[in-house]
């Protein structure tokens, strides 16, 4: 099992979510986050006041997937989240030892379905 974390542009979220649903991935955790990588923030001035946006708004998706679905999920996110501009985000993959469904204590990949 692999935990997939993707940081994406907020504007791409709906498309990414729909595309993941289409390949059978419906369970995910979504968080509104702020951050920056190479895409630094910028400053807007409105009515004499500076509004500095040094941490840009992003969406973080988290999901734990069975190994066989990981490549498909990564491809899907790459296809739908990419605009080609700086700031499109990143995907992180980490191995997960176990998963447990709290309701019935199922373990492993069974707990993911």
């Amino acid at each position: 099992m692999i935990k997939l974390e993707a940081i994406i542009q907020p504007s791409r979220f709906e498309s990414v979510k729909d595309a993941l649903c289409e390949i059978g991935i419906e369970g995910m955790t979504v968080t509104e986050v702020r951050g920056h990588g190479r895409q630094k923030g910028h400053t807007e001035v409105y009515r004499g006041r500076e509004y500095t946006v040094d941490l840009l708004p992003k969406i973080k998706l988290e999901m734990v997937l069975p190994d066989k679905l990981v490549d498909k999920a990564v491809d899907t996110i790459l296809k739908t989240a990419k605009t080609g501009k700086i700031g499109d985000g990143k995907i992180f993959l980490t191995r997960v030892d176990d998963a447990i469904r709290i309701r019935n204590e199922e373990r492993g990949e069974n707990a993911l379905q």
Binding site: P10, E32, E44, Y46, V53, P57
Partner: peptide, 18 residues
């Protein structure tokens, strides 16, 4: 209305106003 959304909305307002 999370602080995140409030800020996004404000950014759009400022950018459009400017």
């Amino acid at each position: 209305l999370t602080p995140w959304k409030a800020e996004m909305l404000w950014q759009l307002f400022v950018a459009t106003s400017n």
